[in-house]
Design a protein around this nucleic acid. Structure first.
Lengths: 337, 337
DNA sequence: ATCATAAGCTAAAACCATTTACTAAAAATA
DNA sequence: TATTTTTAGTAAATGGTTTTAGCTTATGAT
């Protein structure tokens, strides 16, 4: 059996009280003789004593941990996001627990419950399948601080977001300026609000430039993944467009393969533009023109805002919007006549 | 403040004792009136009561959780691995906590300590930087069940591994059969034991085929990542080989870009072979010839063996070796004369 | 009417670490 | 010397849940 060393054992071996050990190990008091302090520390090392966090969390009523639920850890976007979270959490001595919800709202709710039950101090939820019910029921009733990514309308709380509308404008403007007159947008049917904003921006830009969106844009629904992009290839080809905007980079990479399989060359035959700026975009052929989001920074800020909120529940609502920028690479060119 | 609903509150509102609520919610007894049972369940829903796992874990002396430390969540190999772990863990009602050690043994040790302190029942460590000291000091002294991936010599405990030596044979045999006579191997300097086994297999095969390994093989050291593969391009070109074996797929993908930047075509000028079988290999150009490991299955089994061990600490040592197979795609061809 | 059994429920101990409020002894001050 | 202050430490309460052992009251059998 996993018998773990307890503070009581350590205290007994050191010949002092449990209180003394606790105080010393937590640096809560300098009222002990350097002799005692040294003895306790030495024993801690020798016994490899690690405090029982369950007991500690129980009494302190906090786990010093935050929960993170993303749709898909396999998407480099989210692993960068998690990297950012890990970095900041560690500075604040919080431990982040990461889960992949796999676009399954049941699974997601399961993780949320587990996390709350285990005393998680707050949650970062970046997921398309989180429901209003989960938020109101579980999060609010248990009064857990939380931060929703990419689901702004659901959230009257803290937010970290990027300029999605601007991103949409940038994409449209760039594609139009290259001379494209028929453009497909590949987008999931259960698009999160931030993705919908990209489309709004795109449409606005088309109109701004004095064109009729109905004549320019074809919308193709497909799951938000490499597989989804791959599957969209047929529809893209049928739509006879000269350029495609996939609302994330993973889809663009999937689409590359779908098009290649059907003998279509990117960008010679069809230009492709992604969104996110995952570094994988520079490793594919042709290198992907895209909109760069400050991904890791978003993770850092998400952790920072959440921990702020945990530590000072009554501060004002925190909303941060980060800029995006266009990265011109090789996947977009002027359309063939 | 994060006031959470407690069992006491629930009991009070239901007009029964805490014991009763506990028994009912855990299905530990059927000796209650259906009336009481219904009342308790209804209140649970209404209040959104979630048991405090810290208290539960404290008394039960188990956290129903396992810790997972991988070198790099961003590598699709490990996200698939984690997927497998998540699936099985959930079946057994264990919660897996995943961390990316980033090849930093300090960071890794930090996570290991945090996990143990928080009552994790066991650990899966898939990492190159774990040290013998950490294992003996922290894991063994605290008698935590653990399972090491890819570090067989360090582990006298349960193991899940793949046929790395066979994999090495397959690679060498394939490249030689295609007619390559000068081959570079790109490998990290801090290679884990499984990677070293691949090299052993490779070398053996070269010898088996009656050739002098010194004449055939050039070894190039480089970090185990896309960046590492990219950086190895120069050395690969200088070595004047006709084929390269990178010991994982990520490196191969990085190498693609490095070679392309220098005007070298794969496979026309240089053939490239990877190892792992991440699905990304089918999305790059040219599609990557590689050795397929049953990645997600490895995660499933890792979780299964570990949970076995947690539940029955005294069972015999468990060692499972899974097969690998060669996937012929487009990145290897016969060398130019 | 009496005893045994079952049904329905509960009190209290235990898990481990932290914290508050205290004590005893030694040292400093008057 | 008498008093205060400092030093070095401790006892006991606390947190939420589970579990063991047991307690009532109602029902059934004799």
């Amino acid at each position: 059996m996993t018998h773990k060393v307890t503070i009581k054992e350590l205290a007994a071996k050191a010949g002092v009280s449990v209180t003394t050990v606790s105080q010393i190990l937590n640096g809560k008091s300098n009222r002990f003789s350097s002799d005692t302090i040294a003895r306790v520390h030495k024993l801690q090392d020798k016994l490899n004593y690690i405090p029982n966090f369950n007991a500690r969390n129980l009494i302190l009523n906090e786990a010093k941990s935050i929960g993170v639920v993303v749709p898909n850890i396999g998407n480099p976007f989210f692993s960068s996001f998690i990297d950012g979270i890990q970095k900041v959490s560690r500075d604040f001595e919080y431990l982040p627990f990461n889960f992949s919800g796999d676009n399954d709202s049941q699974l997601e709710e399961y993780y949320v419950e587990q996390l709350i039950g285990r005393g998680t101090n707050g949650l970062i939820i970046a997921s398309s399948s989180i429901t209003k019910e989960t938020i109101d029921g579980i999060l609010k009733k248990n009064r857990i601080p939380y931060l929703l990514m990419d689901q702004n309308p659901l959230s009257d709380g803290d937010q970290i977001r990027t300029s999605d509308e601007t991103g949409g404008h940038l994409v449209a403007n760039y594609l139009l300026s290259m001379g494209h007159k028929r453009i497909a947008i590949v987008v999931p049917s259960n698009a999160t609000s931030n993705i919908r904003l990209r489309l709004t921006g795109f449409r606005e830009e088309v109109i701004n430039q004095g064109m009729d969106p109905e004549q320019i844009i074809t919308v193709i629904n497909s799951p938000l993944s490499k597989t989804g992009g791959f599957a969209a290839a047929g529809a893209v080809i049928n739509s006879e467009v000269t350029a495609v905007f996939t609302v994330n980079d993973e889809m663009a990479i999937g689409l590359y393969r779908g098009l290649k399989n059907k003998g279509i060359q990117v960008p010679t035959d069809i230009s492709v533009m992604g969104y996110d700026g995952i570094d994988l975009g520079t490793y594919v052929e042709p290198e992907l023109t895209t909109i760069q989001q400050p991904i890791s920074r978003m993770g850092e800020l998400a952790a920072q805002l959440l921990i702020n909120r945990i530590q000072k529940p009554n501060i004002d609502r925190q909303v941060i919007e980060l800029p995006v920028r266009l990265i011109e690479r090789k996947s977009v060119t002027v359309p063939k006549k």
